[in-house]
Nucleic acid binder design. Structure first.
Lengths: 147, 147
DNA sequence: TATTATATAAGAATTATTCTTAATTGCAAG
DNA sequence: CTTGCAATTAAGAATAATTCTTATATAATA
């Protein structure tokens, strides 16, 4: 549950960030944002569309796609795994970790002892059977960092 | 570079795992597997299709999709981020981590101090600008674990 | 070598996402 | 409070990614 005051604060931050990025406050944007904040299930575009559609029958699916993507760009929300891209595969089944470039989408393997030896938190063990731990460092590869 | 003997061993393991899962050794499967082992770029189905197609002009795209998916199911290769699924979003922009159920695709947030404080390896810093560290525990949620 | 369950190619179908265009609307300036 | 315009939207077409259907071919086993 989110308290009323927390909800209010979230909304002000949202408005501030939109203003900062010259995004107009449209009812579609407000509704989509509020609907996502309510969600506990890391929904997809179609999910949000269905929920928003009840209160806002004229909204188009395209607007939901565009709006969520814009929100993620300016950092008011985050995209989570999967990323809506094509499937990709790795022949290396041994323990290793990934650097993922957010710009060119390259994925590079790396090794790290600390990451190899992470322990599963006790609290998690009670509610989840863990098969594997993935550590993904997201950012920019050397080439993309050069702008 | 993979040595000849390592390559040979990989191939025997591959054959063994296929046999164990009652998968026939077809030339398509062998070629697709070998092509993936050669790849260093975590390729997608289309990528593999293009590479295999040169040596095997009659192979169908569907076979590549099906075969890679089967291989991942029996664990000879792994699927990596993204997962070829629809985009999903998270309104929580604060630091947290995810449990991802491989069966029902649910994603649940969790907190962990150790994971919050992971350090970026020195070796990575030289070649990559890290924006954020993601820790994802993959496995089965309580409901799915009950089978 | 004959049998049979499995795997394949081909193309249709489905799903996810983006693009195009014309109409609409926030919002800043007067 | 009106006006003007750039930003935003709805609608549907277009594209991309993936899966399904079906008839044919083929590994593996007897």
């Amino acid at each position: 549950m989110i308290s009323n005051s927390a909800q209010f604060e979230l909304m002000s931050e949202f408005r501030a960030k939109c203003k900062k990025h010259n995004l107009k406050m449209t009812p579609q944007r407000v509704t989509i944002y509020q609907e996502l904040v309510k969600a506990k299930d890391h929904p997809g575009c179609e999910d949000i569309f269905e929920r928003v559609h009840k209160k806002f029958p004229d909204i188009s699916l395209d607007t939901v796609y565009r709006t969520l993507s814009t929100f993620a760009d300016i950092g008011v929300i985050n995209q989570v795994e999967g990323y809506g891209e094509a499937k990709r595969y790795d022949p290396n089944t041994g323990r290793h970790h990934h650097l993922r470039c957010l710009k060119c989408n390259s994925i590079v393997d790396f090794q790290d002892t600390t990451f190899n030896n992470l322990r599963i938190p006790k609290s998690v063990e009670k509610s989840f059977v863990v098969n594997n731990i993935k550590v993904i460092l997201e950012g920019l590869c050397k080439e993309c960092a050069k702008k």
